[in-house]
């Protein structure tokens, strides 16, 4: 039995909350710096007011970063590169998730000779360092005519993504009752019907996990984006780098901050929208057993 008095308990609580709030502030400080500095004129930053709230609120840095900032040689702003990233990330995430789900389905419910070996190899693919494949992949993309295009990047991310998405779905479907598949077989459903009508509708949590994971990785990727794209197919991350690194003129920190937030926003959004399924999905396998 605890002998702590009521006020003792409250004291403990207060210390705990104070510590948590402190950590919270510490953790959110960079975001605060980014947001406030993206909303003030450059003069206020150069005057040394990094931490203060804007004296003169303005959205101009955002507008500049979006549509007129100098990226590489053209003053296009980040807009076309944001579009590039979207065009790259949506099909890459969708396809790698669907293919991962199909792989997981086949590996668990239509077991064949060598299935374990193939799964092992796919898993191995997850852990091959990006740098190792750069040159072979460049050669490969050149051969199939996808070099320097957004579709080339989609392909690269798709190939890399299948490893993880297969891992997720295989482990999820391993706990999915095989009797359901057999019942559907007797009912007369074929391979794809069973997949679409029976397995996929029950795959919500793991699909969310997979989508968040793939989206974050692909959106945030810099190495492949920098290696395999041309000027007109660069993704957001590479364009942001070009914006910040541009050596001509004054460094417009407020524009840089605005651009950085823009680059981070989609992943943030995905977490907020789908985040509550994320934990649920990660836990699903362990609870069901």
């Amino acid at each position: 039995m605890t002998t702590a008095t009521k006020s003792g308990v409250n004291m403990g609580r207060m210390v705990l909350y104070a510590a948590l709030v402190l950590f919270c502030i510490y953790y959110l400080l960079p975001l605060y710096v980014m947001v406030v500095n993206s909303l003030k004129p450059l003069s206020e930053i150069t005057a040394g007011g990094m931490m203060s709230l804007p004296g003169d609120w303005t959205l101009a840095p955002w507008a500049t970063a979006w549509s007129t900032a100098q990226i590489g040689v053209d003053a296009t702003g980040l807009k076309p590169y944001f579009v590039n990233s979207l065009v790259m990330v949506v099909p890459a995430v969708a396809l790698s998730t669907i293919l991962g789900a199909l792989n997981g389905y086949v590996l668990t419910k239509w077991e064949f000779k060598g299935a374990t070996l193939i799964f092992g190899l796919i898993l191995f693919g997850c852990f091959i360092p990006f740098q190792m494949v750069l040159i072979p992949m460049a050669r490969m993309l050149g051969l199939v005519g996808l070099a320097g295009s957004v579709w080339g990047l989609v392909f690269v991310h798709l190939v890399y993504g299948i490893g993880f998405s297969t891992l997720y779905f295989r482990n999820y479907y391993a706990a999915f009752p095989t009797e359901l598949v057999r019942a559907a077989q007797i009912d007369g459903a074929g391979f794809f019907t069973i997949f679409w009508r029976i397995l996929l509708p029950s795959s919500g949590p793991i699909a969310v996990v997979c989508i968040i994971w793939q989206f974050t990785n692909i959106w945030n990727d810099f190495l492949f984006g920098a290696s395999f794209s041309d000027f007109d197919s660069q993704p957001m991350t590479v364009a942001l780098n070009n914006l910040v690194q541009s050596s001509t003129g004054v460094k417009e920190y407020n524009v840089h901050f605005a651009g950085a937030i823009m680059a981070a926003l989609p992943t943030l959004l995905v977490y907020i929208v789908a985040g509550r399924y994320f934990v649920r999905g990660l836990m699903a396998g362990s609870v069901k057993g």
Partner: peptide, 14 residues
């Protein structure tokens, strides 16, 4: 032309 009842009933959960 057979029908089967499974141990776990195998009802489609969705």
């Amino acid at each position: 032309n057979i029908a089967m009842v499974f141990q776990s009933y195998a009802l489609y959960p969705n």
